[in-house]
């Protein structure tokens, strides 16, 4: 240690330190990006990227900038990856209808081919999560019970234990997950759209993601064995039901019991 401190003013010390720091950050970055790598499901051609670029400039550049560098009204798209584009565009969230607390779901504005081209262009801006392959989405291979555990620990606080969605702050909300396409669920976990946190492959592994999707598909398939689901919103809709319909029935009986018979 003493020898090291004596050499700290050596002319080459700064260089050595710089090399060490570069190696460390480079190494960490490589680890981080490999853990985030989804299996490549799409091979984009140069013409895909070209077509995507044209679509991007005419539809997205107002907010995201001519080269996807972002502006005051939209974030940078460098490094968001193809998965992010596929999610936002195929659910109709992008292009956004208007600025607001949250982008709304609406009928998709681009067909599958155009969405693919846009994704190809944005993916070419910088490495990011890719569109998942078919195997990651095959619910017949998933484990619904494990998916439920992962879902309850990571997702249920916002999206509700039954995946029915719920309110957040200041007009934002977590949408219902019922009827959402498997690929879109996967991409949402992978990319963390809007205010949703990112759940990268190091956090929830691809297998666990498939389990979560399996659980959600099970919930969709689940025909409310308890009876009336009332939107699965829990105490709010149930309370509303019992305080209106339930009380009306009780009042009706009370009136009938005490009325004079004709």
């Amino acid at each position: 240690m003493k020898a090291l401190s004596q050499k700290r003013r050596h002319p080459l010390a700064l260089l050595a330190l710089l090399v060490c720091a570069l190696l460390l950050t480079g190494g960490l970055y490589a680890v981080a990006t490999t853990t985030n790598q989804a299996k490549a499901a799409e091979n984009y051609t140069a013409s895909d990227v070209d077509e995507g670029s044209k679509l991007f400039i005419s539809n997205c550049s107002t907010c995201h900038g001519m080269n996807g560098e972002g502006s005051d009204s939209g974030p940078s798209l460098v490094g968001v990856g193809a998965a992010s584009v596929d999610f936002q565009v195929s659910t109709g969230r992008m292009p956004m209808q208007m600025q607001g607390p949250q982008a709304q779901v609406k009928p998709a504005q681009f067909n599958e081919e155009q969405t693919r081209q846009l994704a190809a262009y944005v993916a070419s801006l910088g490495a990011g999560p890719e569109v998942p392959d078919e195997e990651s989405l095959d619910v017949s291979q998933g484990d619904a019970a494990n998916g439920a555990k992962v879902f309850l620990a990571n997702c249920a606080m916002c999206h509700n234990a039954a995946g029915a969605g719920g309110a957040l702050t200041r007009g934002k909300y977590a949408p219902s997950l019922m009827g959402v396409d498997e690929k879109q669920i996967y991409e949402a976990m992978q990319t963390g759209p809007q205010n949703m946190p990112v759940f990268n492959d190091a956090n929830i592994t691809p297998d666990e993601k498939r389990d979560v999707i399996t659980y959600l598909k099970t919930m969709e398939n689940n025909t409310d064995p308890g009876g009336f689901g009332l939107g699965s919103l829990g105490p709010v809709s149930e309370g509303l039901f019992i305080w209106t319909i339930g009380l009306l029935i009780i009042i009706g009986f009370a009136v009938w019991l005490t009325s004079r018979s004709a």
Partner: peptide, 21 residues
């Protein structure tokens, strides 16, 4: 460790914007 799998977490796993339970 992660809830529910019990696996330990590397600092590099925690990317910007992600959250771990």
């Amino acid at each position: 460790v992660r809830d529910p799998s019990g696996t330990p977490i590397k600092a590099s796993d925690v990317t910007l914007g992600s959250t771990f339970h």
